Simulated scan of single mutants.
Amino acid sequence: MARHLYSCPLRWSDMDAFGHVNNAVFVRYLEEARIDFMFRLAPGEGSESFQGGSVVARHEIDYLRPLVHRHEPVTIETWVTKVGAASLTVAYEVKDADQVYVRASTVVVPFDFDRGRPRRITAEEKMFLEEFRDDADPAAPDAGGRRGTAKEAVAV
């Protein structure tokens, strides 16, 4: 199982009046990491996997500690926890080497915008997603007492 790593820059405008990254901004961070994962790493040269579009059906976010503006980017680790016939669940940790700021998940539905309806996940997409699949609950502690640790990471 591999995990996708996305280096996300922090912007001055991401902060709120309390001096930390606003909770709504984290949704944009997750979107950036998910799009980088699904579109940039889509399988096959010239593949049309994930190119037809997708919609978000659900977000679930646990805010664990405040993140303040700095010049160094934050790492967003992304992996897949579920692949269904017409949906998938992407899990994330927004983190540094020594701490996790946010744990989240998103249910994504591939969508055919020409027909105006959801579509099934193709065999090629499923094969790609399975490379990044980890059924473990990202909120459950591992043997070392840490939560959601990576077994293998793919940096881009």
Rank of each mutant, 00 (worst) to 15 (best):
H4R: 01
S47Q: 04
V109K: 02
D98R: 07
D36W: 00
T81N: 09
V102W: 01
R28K: 12
F37C: 14
P110S: 01
E31I: 05
V102G: 11
G116A: 03
E93N: 15
H71E: 15
Y29H: 02
R11H: 14
S105I: 03
Y29N: 01
T81A: 09
D14Q: 10
L67G: 12
E125F: 03
V94T: 10
A104E: 12
R115A: 06
A86Q: 13
H59C: 11
R40M: 09
V108E: 02
M38V: 07
R34N: 03
G52E: 12
G145K: 11
W79D: 01
I61S: 08
A136P: 13
L129E: 01
P138S: 06
A24G: 14
R70T: 12
Q99T: 15
V27L: 12
H71P: 15
L30P: 10
A140W: 02
Y101S: 13
G46N: 07
R34V: 02
G46S: 08
V56F: 06
T78E: 13
Y101V: 14
V55D: 05
A2D: 10
F128N: 02
V27C: 04
A85S: 15
R34T: 02
E93T: 10
D134M: 04
G145P: 14
E32L: 08
I61D: 10
